[in-house]
C-alpha cells in the first residue's frame, strides 16, 4: 500500500474519527454530541474503505449512521426533563487515568508485537465471499443472531409500550 492517496486519506480520516470522538467528550450539549458521534461513524466508514472492506463500510453507514444515531436522538428527545447536559460525574479523574492506561497499553502492544503479516494486498471484492461464509461456515451463528435481533426488537417494544389503561375485560 504505497499509494500516496491512500496515506493522505488514512490520516485525514483518522483525524476526523478521533477529532469527532473527542468532540463527543467535550461538547456540552447532548444533541451536539450525537452529531459528533455521527462524524466518528462516518470517519470509520472511510477507514473501512481504505482497508478495501466495501461491504462493511456500507453496513457501517446504513446501521450506525442511519439507525443507531437516530435511536440515540430518539432516546434524548424522549427524556426531556433530565436535561441536555453532557457533564462528567465525580468519576472524571479515575476514568481519565483508566482510559489513559488502557489506551497506552493497547498502543504499546500494537507497536511492540511482531504481527504475522501477509503480502496478499487489497481484497478485490468482499460481499460475495462474506455471503458464502455466512450461509456456509457460520450459518449457526447467523441463525442465532437473527433470533437475537427478534428477541431484542420484541423486548424493546414491550419495555417502551405505555402501560395499558385499566380495563376490566
Amino acid at each position: 500500500m504505497d499509494d500516496t492517496g491512500v496515506v493522505i486519506a488514512f490520516y485525514v480520516l483518522a483525524a476526523m474519527t478521533i477529532g469527532s470522538a473527542l468532540a463527543v467528550v467535550v461538547v456540552r450539549n447532548l444533541i451536539h454530541a450525537v452529531v459528533a458521534l455521527i462524524g466518528t461513524f462516518a470517519g470509520l466508514a472511510g477507514l473501512y474503505v481504505t482497508l478495501s472492506a466495501d461491504f462493511i463500510a456500507i453496513t457501517q453507514i446504513l446501521i450506525y449512521i442511519g439507525a443507531i444515531s437516530i435511536l440515540f436522538l430518539f432516546a434524548i428527545v424522549l427524556t426531556p426533563q433530565s436535561g441536555r447536559g453532557n457533564q462528567e460525574s465525580f468519576l472524571r479523574f479515575p476514568a481519565l487515568a483508566l482510559s489513559g492506561l488502557v489506551g497506552a497499553v493497547l498502543i504499546y502492544v500494537a507497536v511492540d508485537t511482531q504481527w504475522n503479516l501477509s503480502d496478499r494486498g487489497d481484497f478485490q471484492e468482499t460481499t460475495g465471499t462474506i455471503g458464502e461464509l455466512l450461509l456456509d461456515t457460520y450459518v449457526l451463528p447467523f441463525e442465532i443472531a437473527s433470533v437475537l435481533l427478534l428477541v431484542a426488537v420484541l423486548g424493546s417494544i414491550i419495555l417502551v409500550r405505555p402501560e395499558p389503561a385499566e380495563e376490566d375485560d
Partner: peptide
C-alpha cells in the same frame, strides 16, 4: 491499531465518566 486503541480509550472514558 493505534487509531482503534485511541478510539477504545475515548469510549471507555465516556462509559465510565458520563453522567447521562
Amino acid at each position: 491499531l493505534i487509531v482503534g486503541a485511541i478510539l477504545f480509550a475515548i469510549g471507555l472514558y465516556l462509559t465510565v465518566a458520563k453522567r447521562n
